[in-house]
Amino acid sequence: MAKTWDQLDELQPAVLRMIKNSLVKNRVAHAYLFEGMRGTGKRDIGLLFTKALFCESLIDGYKPCENCYQCRRINNGNHPDVHLVEPDGLSIKVDQIRELQAEFSKKAVESMTKVYLLISADKMSVSASNSLLKFLEEPGPGTTAFLLTEQPQQILPTILSRCQVLTFQPLSPQVLIKQLEENGVNSQKAPLLAQLTNSLDEALELNGDEWFAQAQKIVVKLFEVLGKSQLEALVSLQNDWFPHFKEKEQIQRGLDLLLLFFKDLLYIQLDKQEQIVFRGELGRLQQFALKTSGRRLSNQMSAILAAKKKLSANMNPQLMMEQLVLKLQEGSSFV
């Protein structure tokens, strides 16, 4: 369901303020680059802006009414003068941009206004980027482009220079927690999900994922075994960790969970229990927090962050995890 102006204004007030000014002053640029993390509302706001350009009954001169014929067709994805381009496989191909150009060379079906949205614009092939550049250099009257990306550094500087760049801020965990709870997620689980992703859809997916539920248990078990012998810790890696965390992305997720567990211990020591995210483990966290120091926790968190960097640099995952466990055990006084 399409989000309204007021709903999106809660997520990205600075972006909506700039869009409002453009609409009220009739200074809409011919091309915008929306850049920011996944889940920050880029696509929703691109469609909202598009509706504002077509709406027959704007509210206060800038808010789409959501009820007119134009707004309803855009919400249903079947407006003839609004074109959405997404990667075909791994990239946006030059043929997709050429088709777009051919479409836009025709007269607009119903008005002078035409809009196209490029989703994951950073995934354009080199030839597609060059083709789009020509398109941006000679925009047709009434044409507005929205380029959406999580990786602006991957886009040609010559394309960037022809766009008005709007930066989308990461959602605050509090906003995401509220959204998750409104979508039926247990209030005990929502804080952890809100720390792992900025995307409501991804958080909801994780919430129902059995692999993720098991991952949390394995992370807590690994933490507990750190207080035992090196042999037991390495055996636990072989028996529990490696069979479950196989892909690089999965291992990064596991390290994120482990880091959050250590952060929770630090929050307890700092008497900030309201900030902990492993809420179902509160009793055990309190016991563990009594048996370590803030400096020790800080060193261990640094070791996990270093391990994440090594993994990103393609270090052997098994060797990386074995080194990390031994590093985390140094001077450990956990039971």
Results as ranks from 00 to 15, higher is better:
37 M>G: 08
52 A>V: 13
334 F>T: 07
149 T>C: 01
334 F>V: 05
227 G>Q: 06
145 A>K: 04
223 F>S: 02
147 L>V: 03
203 A>M: 05
147 L>Y: 02
152 P>C: 09
166 L>E: 06
220 V>C: 06
246 K>H: 07
10 E>H: 04
153 Q>M: 12
177 I>A: 03
144 T>V: 15
112 M>D: 15
24 V>P: 00
299 N>D: 14
180 L>T: 08
281 E>V: 06
228 K>T: 05
274 E>H: 13
271 D>E: 14
299 N>P: 02
85 V>E: 04
238 Q>R: 13
84 L>G: 03
103 E>H: 08
221 K>A: 14
101 Q>S: 12
128 A>T: 11
181 E>L: 09
78 N>M: 09
134 K>Q: 01
222 L>R: 07
291 K>T: 13
19 I>M: 12
161 S>K: 09
25 K>F: 14
314 N>H: 08
57 S>E: 10
238 Q>Y: 13
300 Q>M: 13
172 S>T: 13
237 L>A: 14
30 H>P: 04
73 R>K: 15
60 D>F: 06
293 S>K: 09
185 V>P: 05
328 L>G: 09
193 L>S: 12
159 I>L: 09
34 F>G: 03
166 L>G: 03
281 E>G: 07
118 L>T: 00
253 R>E: 05
282 L>Y: 07
330 E>V: 11
86 E>Y: 05
247 E>A: 15
330 E>F: 05
102 A>P: 03
332 S>I: 12
66 E>N: 12
79 H>C: 06
225 V>I: 14
19 I>P: 01
26 N>R: 15
122 D>Q: 09
31 A>C: 06
35 E>L: 12
318 Q>P: 02
279 R>E: 05
29 A>I: 09
285 L>M: 07
196 L>M: 12
286 Q>A: 12
63 K>A: 04
47 L>Y: 00
210 E>F: 12
145 A>E: 03
122 D>I: 06
249 E>R: 08
333 S>M: 11
175 V>F: 12
304 I>G: 07
180 L>R: 08
28 V>I: 14
150 E>V: 09
325 V>Y: 07
254 G>W: 11
200 L>I: 10
173 P>Y: 01
254 G>V: 04
